[in-house]
Nucleic acid binder design. Sequence first.
DNA 1: AAGGGTGCCAACCGCACTTCG
DNA 2: ACGAAGTGCGGTTGGCACCCT
Length: 183
Amino acid sequence: MRKPCCEKKETNKGAWSKQEDQKLMDYIQKHGEGCWRSLPEAAGLLRCGKSCRLRWVNYLRPDLKRGNFGEDEEDLIIKLHALLGNRWSLIAGRLPGRTDNEVKNYWNTHLKRKLVQLGMDPNNHRLGLTRPSKSFVSNNNHTYKAVNSNSQALNSTSDPAESNTSSLPDLNLDLTIGLPLMD
DNA sequence: AAGGGTGCCAACCGCACTTCG
DNA sequence: ACGAAGTGCGGTTGGCACCCT
């Protein structure tokens, strides 16, 4: 059994103060990202490394685009979710300035409901169809799993990309991931 | 004005994966 | 090859703000 990351020391929890944000930003500006475990102590923060990373990634990063999602972003999220399921980090990776947490929250609060209103099942993006949450065997003996229920969904014998093509026939998204540019 | 209900979002938790000695 | 440590990801929750009665 693995120890929790912040067991040894007393750490702050809950909302971040402005001072804490400032300390974290100052430290990362000077030293860059990484070494999250040792960062809190080095930066003078009573937080666990995980908490620091989350705060930076989801809130403090300078390239974040705050504010409402545009219609094009909504469309893209819906299409990507149809293809990838709940792979929020992958989906967020296609939306510059958006974080996985933000995309996930937006999906759960807005887009899920929107699809339901349009008569679509948010789990599989099919019109008027719902699948049971557990895996089952379909008529043609393919085993399906609910796309929403876990991250292993794409490993099932019939992945969402394949099973959703009937409702999203014209998608042509380039999902290749490029290597970061080196100097 | 007050209390309850609901929605939203930031943050936490636990697990899986990756890296390193 | 193996185990420990570090990191990332997705699900869930807590709490605040707003709305309705």
